[in-house]
Computed example of a mutant assay.
Amino acid sequence: MRDGTSVWYSEKHKRWIFQVSFRDSSGKRRAIQRRAKTKSEAERRAIDLARSPNLKSRRNAAIDVQGLIARYVEFQKMRVRSTSLANSVHLLRLYVVPVMGNRSIEKVDSAAIEDLMSSLAQSNLRTSSINTVRAKLHALFAFAVRQGILDSNPVAKVPRYSESGGKPSQVQSPWTLEEASAALAAFRDSDLEAFLLIALSTGMRKGEILALRWSDVNFANQTLKIQRSRGERRQLGLNGDVEIKLTEGAPKTQASVRTLPMSDELAASLLQLRNHRFQLRGLATNEHIILGANGAPMSPSYLTRAFNRKLKEAGLRRIRIHDLRHTVAHLALEAGVLLEEISQGFGHSGVEITKRTYASVVQALSDRFAKKVSTILFE
């Protein structure tokens, strides 16, 4: 028998008994029992009862999408990692609840899901994110089907959003040398000056820079040691709210643990910053280099907001913080730095990753090489 229905023979009543169990609109488990003369009759009537509009209305009268999310969270708390569940809830509450949170789950059909995805595309959400929201919705309504709350999943009939719609990627064209120089000038004497200088001098990841401490800087050898990364992770609080937890630990991969040389300009700037901090309030060697306005280690979310705000104020073309890394790679390749050297400096686990990431630049350099060789040979 299907989920929520069962059939058995009762010696006491000399009849076949069929039962349909369900959760009512308050979430309580309920059951309805009836008798039949034969097993086949009991099975047929059990299915009919489970599918009846009467029972469906009793099950779902007060369940809206927001209520379904709450049930989903309670069910999944002990079954999936807290961070995974928190990410799912965050996306559902951010993109789904404002549109259909108060809508009865019985009234959510494939057309409603398609409308939601179209509205997300119109808001310039990238295609991959739209499909991630769709996947979270599919899991939510699959849960409703498994629990016997719904007969079918309305998301199942809606295909993934086409790459021709939505915004395909957040990746922006990297800064040119002129744009990078203008940014360094605009960020001078701000809380983000050291961050931007380190980012454009080394190509380090955002979390690696935020985790840098003065003990990682060797001014005698002019090197930076990368051995940890600072980030943020969503988790569910005791009341079901999504909370942001700051984390700091090992970097992305084993290859990410590395020592990088500092340019004379970067070493001089960091030395000046260290001396200023020491004169201002003393300095512990284990203190973070990048601090927020409140003097505490800067969080990734604060950094992103402050970075975007500074670009807008300076009239500079906005790119993601991670695109600073792409800027460094492009400038280095243009300057003739070997792929292997970039791979090691960036902490990639292999040069193939570097080739794959910067394939367009590598191809452009190869084309230029071929033209130069042709010029030498035939002109």
Rank of each mutant, 00 (worst) to 15 (best):
R146E: 14
R146K: 15
Q147H: 06
G148M: 06
G148N: 04
G148W: 00
G148L: 05
I149Y: 06
I149E: 00
I149R: 06
L150V: 05
D151L: 03
D151V: 00
S152D: 05
N153P: 07
P154G: 06
P154M: 04
V155E: 08
V155I: 15
V155A: 15
V155F: 07
A156Q: 12
A156E: 12
K157I: 11
K157W: 06
V158K: 02
V158G: 03
V158H: 01
P159L: 03
R160H: 02
R160M: 02
R160Y: 01
Y161N: 02
Y161E: 03
S162C: 05
E163S: 13
E163I: 07
E163H: 08
S164N: 04
G165K: 09
G165V: 00
G166M: 01
G166R: 03
K167E: 00
P168R: 01
P168D: 01
P168Q: 01
S169M: 05
S169P: 02
Q170A: 09
Q170R: 10
V171P: 01
Q172K: 12
Q172T: 13
Q172Y: 05
Q172S: 09
Q172D: 09
Q172C: 10
S173V: 15
S173Q: 14
P174M: 12
T176I: 07
T176Q: 04
T176V: 08
L177I: 14
E178V: 10
E178A: 14
E179R: 08
E179K: 12
E179A: 08
A180L: 07
S181R: 11
S181N: 05
A182C: 00
A183L: 14
A185W: 00
A185C: 01
A185Q: 10
A186K: 00
A186I: 00
A186H: 00
F187A: 11
F187T: 08
F187K: 03
F187C: 03
R188Q: 11
D189P: 14
S190Y: 00
S190W: 01
S190G: 08
S190D: 06
D191L: 10
D191T: 13
D191P: 13
L192R: 02
L192Y: 06
E193K: 02
E193I: 02
E193V: 03
E193F: 02
A194F: 04
A194D: 15
L196V: 15
L197P: 04
L197E: 13
L197K: 12
I198S: 10
I198W: 05
I198G: 10
A199M: 05
A199C: 09
L200G: 11
L200P: 04
S201H: 08
S201A: 14
S201I: 11
T202I: 10
T202P: 12
T202L: 13
G203P: 12
M204A: 15
M204H: 14
R205D: 06
R205Q: 07
R205W: 07
K206M: 04
K206R: 14
K206D: 09
K206W: 05
E208P: 05
E208Q: 13
I209T: 09
I209K: 06
L210W: 01
L210M: 06
L210E: 01
A211H: 11
A211M: 10
L212P: 13
L212W: 06
W214S: 14
S215N: 14
V217P: 11
V217Y: 14
N218I: 03
N218L: 02
F219G: 15
F219I: 14
A220V: 12
A220S: 10
A220Q: 08
N221A: 13
N221C: 10
N221V: 07
Q222C: 09
Q222M: 12
Q222L: 12
T223Q: 04
